[in-house]
Amino acid sequence: MNNFNYLRADDTEHAVALIGKETNSRFLAGGTNLIDRWKYNLTHPDTLIDLANIEELHQITETENGGLRLGAMAGNADTAYHPLVKKRYPLLKNTILAGASAQIRNAATNGGNLMQRTRCYYYYDHESPCNKRNPGSGCPATEGHNRLHAVIGHSENCIATHPSDMCIALAALDAVVQVTGAEGNRSIPFTEFHRLPGNNPSKDNTLRPGELITSIDLPAEGFAENYSYLKLRDRNSYAFALVSVATGLRLKDSKIEKANIAVGGIAHKPWRVQEAEDFLKNKRPDRDNFAQAAEIIMDGAEGFEHNAFKIPLTKRAIIRNGMMALNPQETQRPGAGPSR
């Protein structure tokens, strides 16, 4: 809620230069999360560097390898409704549309979506201890209200979850995050972009200081034939996921040739388990096999006072979503609700 300077970057080099020069500065994209956290007294930038004028970051373009490049400043809604996304990545479309509200999706950007921070009650209360906000102050969630919290991959320092829907699909789609910084450009596989809390929960991702996300690149394969996003939450729309699952299947001769499954709402990052996907290879896409995959995915899960229910619920959601992916035209619902 402090005052700040407001600057506009002309291009990515300018943005990177500004963030290096201006102390305690942040990039401003759609602002739907940053401004909210600033108003809650959780972040106190001295300077905001608005990326809105950087034309190239707004583009959605096809890549040479048959994939799609989603500009970091392209809007979430514009992305979901982009003809190529609708046609080739319907999983991404449905997942984006299951997040937040239409107004927020209009303002929020693809890069910003990756940068969302947790909805943990204690993180959001600036007067509360929180290792993410104030390292070393403690984590009241482990002993407090932890219904929203992680059941897997958590540490004693932090049991927060990553709140994004879109990122769950991006993880399932094997997207790659392109970043630029003072030391040049690099690519980060999506599953390595977000990190687990470990001993350093203040760090949500693997970006280096001053680095700017320029795009998120989708590979050619979009699972447009067999896909599903299922989101379970406390109301039918406009609520963060308690559990969500993004599934993309490549089927051949009624068997699974490739299965990509990412789970949201249960961990500090989109949760993908290679062994489970390997297990499903060459298996029939049926309840039993999805159930076994679910067991592998949730191996090692450990709940807390209010969220232990998420463990069985996630397993059921993985199974249901696998089945929904077999028949996407009939099972997909607005808001990614369960099939009927």
């Binding site: 009650y121 204690y122 209360d125 407090g144 209200h145 039918n236 729309s237 607005p334 808001g335």
Partner: peptide
């Protein structure tokens, strides 16, 4: 009270 906001105090939405 840990959820003093309209994101986590869930009022019904139109979809409900």
């Amino acid at each position: 009270y840990v959820n003093p906001n309209l994101a986590e105090y869930h009022l019904p939405v139109h979809a409900d």
